[in-house]
Simulated scan of single mutants.
Amino acid sequence: MSSECTSYYSAENVFMNGSSCPKEGSDPSATFCCGFNDIKYCCDDPNSFFPYEYGYMWWLRYVRDLY
């Protein structure tokens, strides 16, 4: 089983090519694309991709902690 991490722009606005999971030479159980719109990586949890930017998620956590 494998999945695709589509191309994206990183938080530094650098274009990153898409890739398949698992990556060659990495953990064979990392078959899912995980992370955020601007940081993607392979992992073993099918529920670990969030369609937001990484910084936005940290901002939500900060706001939650204020209240």
Rank of each mutant, 00 (worst) to 15 (best):
P46Q: 10
K23I: 09
S29R: 08
Y54L: 12
G35T: 04
N47P: 01
Y62R: 15
R64F: 12
S19Q: 09
F49P: 01
S7D: 14
D44C: 06
W58H: 07
F32T: 03
F15A: 12
V14A: 07
W58E: 09
F15N: 05
Y8A: 05
E24D: 10
L60I: 05
E4G: 03
S19P: 00
G35S: 05
S48E: 15
L66Y: 05
F50S: 01
C43D: 13
D65L: 13
M16W: 00
M16H: 08
N37Q: 10
S3A: 11
N37I: 02
E12R: 15
V14D: 09
N47D: 14
F15T: 04
Y9I: 01
M16P: 00
Y52F: 13
F50D: 00
D38K: 02
M1W: 08
A30P: 00
S19C: 07
V14P: 01
T31W: 00
M57V: 11
P28N: 07
A11R: 09
S2G: 12
F50L: 10
F49K: 02
Y62V: 13
N17A: 13
G18V: 04
N37E: 10
Y41N: 02
E53C: 01
R61I: 14
N37H: 03
F15K: 12
R64V: 11
S26W: 02
Y9V: 03
D44N: 15
S7C: 06
P28E: 13
P51K: 00
W59P: 00
Y8N: 07
T31G: 04
E53V: 00
Y62N: 10
E4Y: 14
S29N: 13
S20E: 09
K40Q: 15
N17H: 10
F15M: 10
Y62T: 13
P46N: 11
P46H: 03
D27A: 06
I39E: 01
T6F: 08
D38V: 01
S20T: 12
E53I: 00
Y52A: 06
D27T: 05
S19D: 06
A30Y: 11
M1R: 12
C21Y: 04
R64Q: 15
Y8R: 07
F32W: 14
Y67W: 10
V14W: 03
S26A: 11
C42D: 07
S7R: 08
K40A: 10
K23A: 11
N17Y: 06
N47V: 03
A30W: 07
S7M: 07
A30S: 13
S10I: 05
C34T: 02
L60P: 00
D65Y: 08
P46S: 11
C43I: 05
A30I: 00
S20R: 11
C43L: 08
